[in-house]
Design a protein around this nucleic acid. Structure first.
Length: 562
DNA sequence: GAGAGGGACTCAGAAACGTGAGT
DNA sequence: AACTCACGTTTCTGAGTCCCTCT
C-alpha cells in the first residue's frame, strides 16, 4: 500500500547551515534491511477458545490473530470506560475486515463476543516457566538474530542500528483520549518497505518477496521506512544514538545552546522591547507583541512551542496553542497555567510574570478589535509557531535558534545551578571519599536531575506499588539506624559512621518520595548537556559510568572523550 | 509569500527486560 | 546455593518539533 509513495526529492539547498540539512553519507550505506515479525501461530488448536453468543466458535487464522490482539489488551492494564468505548468500536470495525465472509455473517455484535478463553490461554502460556536450557537457547537464538541485523556500514564505519525490527501487528493504543485507539495496526511485509542504501549494497528481501521500493538518498539517515496507515505518516528504521552522525548532531545541539547562553541577555532585551504595546498599534505590531509574549513564556517556563495539530487529534497544547481556558490571571502579577501537554501530561503551575507580560496576557483574552474571546479561543490568535521560529531565527541569524533550544538551554542551566547549590549545601568533598560520601554525591546528582525533570514537567502517571514498598524499607532502615545510634556512645568511630549513614538514608528517602511522580530519564538523555555532568564528575572524583548508562555513554561519546 | 501538507528527525512515558542485593 | 523481588536499563512506538516542497 505504500509502494511508490511520493517522497520529496532531496535538495542540496543549504541556506541555513548545520549538519541536519547536510549529506549524511556518501559512498557506503549497507545493511541487512529490517527484520520482520514471525508469522502468527494460532493458539486455539481444534478446541475453540473464542465464544460468540455463548457458543464456542473456531476462528480462522487471520481472525484469531486479531482477536488475540484484543485478548492481549484485556490481559494488561485497561483504559477508563469512556475511552474503552471508542477502543471497542474501532477494534470491532477493523476486526471485521479480517474476517471471512462466513465469519462476518456470524459475528455481528461486539457485546456478544467472549474473549475470556483466549485471555485464559494467554495467561497460562505466560505463566509457564522455561527451563534453564530453554532460556539459554532462546537467548542464543536472539543474539544470533541480532548479530545479523543490528549493524550498518556507513562509509566504512560499522554503526549500530537503534530499531532494526519492524513494529509487530497489534492494536494502536496511543496516549490520552485519541480517536484511533483500538484500531488494528497491520502486519508490515517486505512489499510495504522502502529501503534506503547505497547502490552497490542492496539487501535481499526475505524468501521470494520483493521490497516496495529501493532508494539511494544520501541526505537522510534512515535505512528503511514504511507507511503507517493509522497515523498516516512514515515510520523509520534509524541509526543508533551512538553512531557518528547522531553524535555530531547531538554535539551541534548543545553548541547552539551555548550560543544562546552567550547571547541570552541580548535576546531577552530584544523580546522585552517587543512586549510593549504601541499607541494605534497595527495588526502587525500586535502580532509581534504576541510573538514576544510567547517567547517570554517559552524562555521563562521552558514550554514547548505548541504546533497546530490535525483535526481529530488528541487535544493537547503547547505555548502557541494555549486557549483562554488554560490561563488564570491572579493577583500580584501571578498567573496559573493548566493544560494537557505532550503525551497528555497535565501542566499545572503558577508563575509570576513581568508587568508587561501580565498586561499582554490580559489583552490577549480579547481579540485585536477588543472583543472578548470565548474560553475555547486561542490566546495567541494572531500568530503561528512558524512566526515564533522566524522571529528567533532573526535574533540569532544562521545560528539555529528555534523554540525548542530554550527548553534545552533552561534545562542545562537549571541543572548546573542546582548541582552547584546542592554540592555546596552537602559539602561534597573533591577528594577520595567514604562510601557515605559517594552515596551523597549520587544523591546530589539525582536531586539536580530531579529539579530539571520538575522544570520540564516530566511526570510518570503509572506509579508502581513497588515504589511505595521501597519507601517503607527505607523508613525501616532509618528507624534501625536511629535505634543503633541511641545505643552508641558519642565520639566513637561507630557513632560517627552511623550518623553519616543516617544522614544518607534520610536524603535517600526524601529523594525517593519526591521522585515518585517524576521520570528522570528523559531530561538526562535529551536535555542536560553531558559536558556539565562530566565536569562535575571530574571535580568530585565520580566515575562517569556511575551517572550514565551504557546507551547514554554511547550517545554522549562526543562530550566524554577526554 | 503564505499556507497546506508531508517528511525526517527528536523527545516521550510505559512496558519489557536484565541484574544484583538480600534472604 | 538458589530464589525472589525491587530496581535500573533498554526497548518500544507514539507524539512532538521544524523543515521543505508545492500550489
Amino acid at each position: 500500500m505504500s509502494t511508490g509513495r511520493k517522497r520529496a526529492a532531496s535538495s542540496s539547498k543549504e541556506d541555513r547551515p548545520g549538519i541536519k540539512r547536510a549529506v549524511k553519507w556518501t559512498r557506503q550505506f549497507s545493511h541487512a534491511g529490517p527484520r520482520f515479525q514471525p508469522d502468527y501461530k494460532p493458539i486455539s488448536g481444534t478446541k475453540p477458545l473464542f465464544r460468540y453468543a455463548g457458543k464456542p466458535l473456531l476462528l480462522e487464522r487471520n481472525t484469531e490473530e486479531v482477536a488475540v490482539m484484543y485478548a492481549r489488551y484485556l490481559c494488561g492494564k485497561r483504559r477508563t470506560r469512556d475511552i474503552e468505548k471508542t477502543l471497542q468500536q474501532n477494534f470491532f470495525e477493523d476486526w471485521q475486515k479480517y474476517m471471512s465472509s462466513k465469519e462476518k455473517q456470524q459475528i455481528k455484535k461486539f457485546e456478544l463476543c467472549d474473549f475470556s478463553g483466549l485471555v485464559k490461554k494467554l495467561q497460562e502460556d505466560k505463566a509457564k516457566p522455561l527451563t534453564k536450557q530453554e532460556r539459554a537457547a532462546q537467548k542464543k537464538k536472539r543474539e544470533d538474530m541480532m548479530n545479523q541485523y543490528k549493524t550498518v556500514i556507513v562509509d566504512g564505519r560499522r554503526e549500530l542500528i537503534s530499531n532494526f525490527t519492524v513494529e509487530p501487528p497489534g492494536l494502536y493504543m496511543g496516549r490520552g483520549k485519541n480517536d484511533n485507539i483500538g484500531r488494528v495496526k497491520p502486519r508490515i511485509k517486505p512489499k510495504d518497505i522502502t529501503i534506503n542504501c547505497d547502490d552497490r549494497h542492496i539487501p535481499k528481501a526475505p524468501g521470494n518477496s520483493k521490497w516496495g521500493a529501493i532508494v539511494h538518498d544520501k541526505s537522510v539517515m534512515w535505512l528503511a521506512s514504511w507507511y503507517d496507515p493509522i497515523t498516516k505518516g512514515p515510520k523509520y528504521i534509524q541509526l543508533h544514538p551512538s553512531s557518528k552522525i547522531k553524535n555530531d548532531i547531538e554535539e551541534e545541539k548543545f553548541q547552539t545552546v551555548r550560543k544562546l547562553h552567550r547571547k541570552i541577555l541580548e535576546v531577552r532585551k530584544h523580546y522585552e522591547k517587543d512586549l510593549k504595546s504601541k499607541k494605534n498599534e497595527t495588526e502587525g505590531e500586535y502580532a509581534t507583541r504576541q510573538i514576544a509574549t510567547a517567547v517570554y513564556l517559552i524562555d521563562n517556563f521552558a514550554l514547548r512551542v505548541g504546533n497546530e495539530k490535525p483535526e481529530g487529534a488528541t487535544d493537547t497544547v503547547g505555548c502557541c496553542s494555549l486557549r483562554v481556558e488554560h490561563l488564570s490571571l491572579l493577583a500580584s502579577k501571578n498567573i496559573r497555567l493548566n493544560f494537557l501537554g505532550k503525551d497528555s501530561i497535565r501542566y499545572e503551575k503558577g508563575h509570576q510574570v513581568s508587568n508587561a507580560v501580565y498586561d499582554n496576557l490580559q489583552d490577549f483574552t480579547r481579540d485585536f478589535d477588543g472583543k472578548k474571546k470565548t474560553k475555547k479561543q486561542l490566546l495567541f490568535d494572531s500568530i503561528k509557531t512558524k512566526h515564533v521560529n522566524d522571529y528567533l531565527y532573526n535574533l540569532m541569524k544562521g545560528q539555529g535558534l528555534t523554540a525548542k533550544v530554550f527548553r534545552t538551554f533552561r534545562a542545562t542551566q537549571h541543572f548546573e545551578e542546582k548541582l552547584e547549590e546542592y554540592s555546596k549545601f552537602h559539602e561534597l568533598k573533591a577528594t577520595k571519599s567514604t562510601p557515605e560520601d559517594d552515596k551523597m554525591k549520587m544523591i546530589v546528582f539525582k536531586k539536580a536531575n530531579l529539579a530539571v525533570a520538575q522544570l520540564l514537567n516530566h511526570q510518570t502517571l503509572s506509579k508502581p506499588t513497588t515504589k511505595g514498598k521501597a519507601i517503607k524499607v527505607n523508613e525501616k532502615r532509618i528507624k534501625d539506624a536511629q535505634y543503633k545510634l541511641n545505643n552508641l556512645s558519642k565520639g566513637t568511630d561507630e557513632h560517627r559512621k552511623t550518623t553519616a549513614q543516617l544522614v544518607v538514608l534520610k536524603h535517600e528517602l526524601d529523594l525517593k518520595v519526591e521522585q515518585r511522580t517524576y521520570a528522570l530519564g528523559t531530561s538526562k538523555t535529551n536535555y542536560i548537556d553531558p559536558q556539565v555532568s562530566a565536569k562535575w564528575c571530574k571535580k568530585y572524583k565520580v566515575d562517569i559510568t556511575k551517572v550514565y548508562s551504557k546507551v547514554q555513554l554511547g550517545k554522549f561519546r562526543w562530550a566524554l572523550r577526554s
